[in-house]
Amino acid sequence: METRITGRVFVFGKNVDTDQIYPGRFVEITDPADVAKHVMEGADPAFAGACRPGDVIVAESNFGCGSSREHAAVALKAAGVGAVVAASFGRIFYRNGINLGLPLLVCPDCHDKVKAGESVTIDMETGEITGPSGEVVARAEKVSDYMMDILRNGGIKPMLQRRLSQGG
């Protein structure tokens, strides 16, 4: 995981559920590259075409609520989304995202402080979100040590891989 993430902002509202992030009719697809083609399709069908690596999703509360489908996190990760900043997250989505090494930050007012299309930089260590001219526009909650450890390892899979290979 990069400690600093820079990308263009895409803004979404509240209660963006996993059906909007990844519609149910595509859940049978399992290859991450194919999954990424439908990212955010239920909320904004143009997103998959417009998203570039590092871009940042900024949303209001309860992002990723609803279904447990890991496809939602897989799609965002495989599409190259650099981070999601939201006022709060659906709890299963939160676990899924962190497990895959997708930076997720809780910030109550970021969606009021940034505009769609502008570039922001997120400092994962401090939670500071800076705007195009380098000024701090919002502060996200610091990611807990437990979650940061998973993110620094690039997700939980490499950690488990080590644990299993050590027979633990």
Binding site: G66, S67, S68, R69, E70, A73, I92, F93, R95, N96, N99, L100, G155, I156, K157, L160, R163, L164
Partner: peptide
């Protein structure tokens, strides 16, 4: 499945997880 909360009706702790968490349970 997200609706695993259902099992609280029986006095159980039921909770939903994603695929990688489930893989962790399968392996460990």
């Amino acid at each position: 499945d997200s609706h695993t909360t259902t099992h609280g009706a029986f006095g159980a702790f039921g909770t939903g997880v994603g695929a990688t968490d489930m893989a962790t349970i399968l392996a460990t």
